[in-house]
């Protein structure tokens, strides 16, 4: 139990630039500038390598088009409305699925987490259902909903739900008993205690779950489109691949990567905003 707790909860904190005690503001700024420069060099080097490897024939350009061609293909695709529709479909499938999973997980997690009897009764079922890979549900989704967006949603919700639910359970269990008893002494009712004591203590966990869930939801949204053929970027990739448009496949993969980066950055920003009062964000030392 403890093993699971330690790893799921704070082991992967928002890995932003930790405030290191630098000598002076100016020195820190230059070192940050150096880091950025190195990072840009890294990107340039990666692109250069990608350009050179197919050009000198290490890998056939039929399978690995040079970076410039891929970027041109990406730019071309970005002018087509078809791509934007696919992108929108993906974002909707992801967002809607994540929303449903989050609401369900938070409501159920708070209910089950605050009632020990329910928690004990459901533990074995949760431990069994949670590790079931949601791709196992693909055939079921196909039979039930065919290529409808609902088959995307089924996979996304199932995958994201467990990530968030488990974190909510840990969060509700992690409430400081002194704070809880203090609230009781002050005569706060059950709902007020949930609102003022349990919710803020559980919020970091909820957001950790949300961050993990957001990444998993994107993976499953794209998977559903790729395998089942529900509309979205994944389907575009499958179509491009089967029609032999190799550069387009790479271009779309880069696009999904960009989407992933945006999701990561967005969720981190949300975390920092909602948890501005929490030690992990205030920049104090968290072990």
């Amino acid at each position: 139990m403890t093993a699971a707790m330690t790893d799921n909860a704070p082991a992967t904190p928002a890995a932003g630039p930790t405030a290191e005690a630098g000598p002076s503001r100016a020195a820190r700024a230059t070192s940050r500038l150096g880091t950025t420069a190195l990072g840009l060099t890294g990107i340039a080097g990666f692109l250069l390598l990608w350009e050179v490897v197919p050009r000198i024939g290490l890998v056939s350009a039929d399978y690995l088009p040079p970076a410039s061609q891929v970027l041109v293909a990406l730019a071309e695709r970005l002018t087509l409305p078809r791509l934007w529709v696919a992108l929108l479909d993906t974002v909707i499938g992801w967002g809607l699925g994540l929303l449903i999973a989050t609401v369900a997980a938070v409501v159920l997690g708070f209910a089950v987490g605050s009632l020990p009897l329910l928690r004990r009764l459901t533990a074995s079922t949760v431990e069994f259902l949670r590790p079931i890979p949601s791709v196992a549900l693909i055939p079921l989704a196909v039979l039930l909903y065919a290529t409808d967006i609902r088959s995307t949603l089924l996979l996304v919700v199932y995958a994201a739900f467990w990530q968030i639910y488990i974190q909510v359970l840990y969060g509700v269990a992690d409430v400081d008993p002194v704070a809880e008893q203090t609230a009781r002494s002050f005569g706060l009712g059950r709902l007020a205690r949930i609102r003022h004591v349990v919710w803020p203590s559980a919020l970091p966990y909820v957001l950790t779950g949300f961050r993990l869930g957001a990444a998993v939801a994107l993976i499953l949204a794209i998977t559903a489109q790729l395998i089942i053929g529900s509309p979205g970027l994944g389907k575009e990739i499958a179509v491009a691949q089967s029609s032999g448009a190799v550069a387009a496949v790479y271009a779309l993969v880069i696009l999904t990567g960009a989407l992933g980066v945006i999701v990561n950055i967005g969720v981190r920003a949300l975390e920092r905003r909602l948890l501005h009062w929490h030690t992990s964000v205030r920049g104090e030392n968290v072990a």
Binding site: I222, T223, L226, I237, Q241, V249, V253, G257
Partner: peptide
């Protein structure tokens, strides 16, 4: 950040 399943094709 690239969703791993797109690596299959």
């Amino acid at each position: 950040a690239i969703p791993p399943p797109v690596l299959v094709p």
